[in-house]
């Protein structure tokens, strides 16, 4: 149930994000979800992609500082309160979310969650019958 998220450290200079998307485009790697966290000097791009292992290799070869981070992808119904239910389960189990990002499309809403103990996140969400994506599910999205 662990999803390998691609994390890339980017300096704050123009064109750097384009360099990154170009590599992914050239190798036909699809981006399912992306978030960009930035400070004044640098940013971290976090992406859920198809073939994360290959993507990591391609980016590293191109000189990017890249790593794979374990995250959980929760599949939620696209309705008010759905995200709250997920986060409440985590809060009730004293799990601190490091960061998360989400998007919704038609009937599906997807939340990407990162916490220190990712196995515990999986355990409590499954116990509460939340639907988690597998790495192989990413291709079909």
């Amino acid at each position: 149930m662990i999803i390998k998220q691609l994390s890339v450290f980017l300096e704050d200079r123009s064109g750097r994000l384009t360099d990154l998307t170009q590599i992914l485009a050239e190798h036909e790697i699809n981006i399912t979800a992306l978030s960009l966290a930035e400070t004044a000097d640098y940013g971290i791009v976090r992406m859920v992609v198809g073939k994360p292992g290959c993507a990591e290799e391609f980016l590293r070869e191109a000189g990017f500082s890249v790593r794979l981070t374990d995250v959980v992808c929760v599949n939620m119904p696209d309705r008010p309160g759905a995200l709250h239910e997920v986060l409440k389960i985590l809060a009730d189990n004293n799990i601190n979310v490091d960061y998360m990002y989400a998007f919704s499309n038609k009937d599906v809403a997807l939340g990407v969650i990162r916490a220190a103990d990712i196995d515990q996140v999986i355990e409590v969400l499954q116990k509460n019958e939340m639907q988690l994506l597998r790495q192989s599910d990413i291709y079909q999205l």
Partner: peptide, 8 residues
């Protein structure tokens, strides 16, 4: 390096 802004 970590992908957490807080740690960086």
């Amino acid at each position: 390096w970590s992908d957490s802004i807080r740690e960086l």
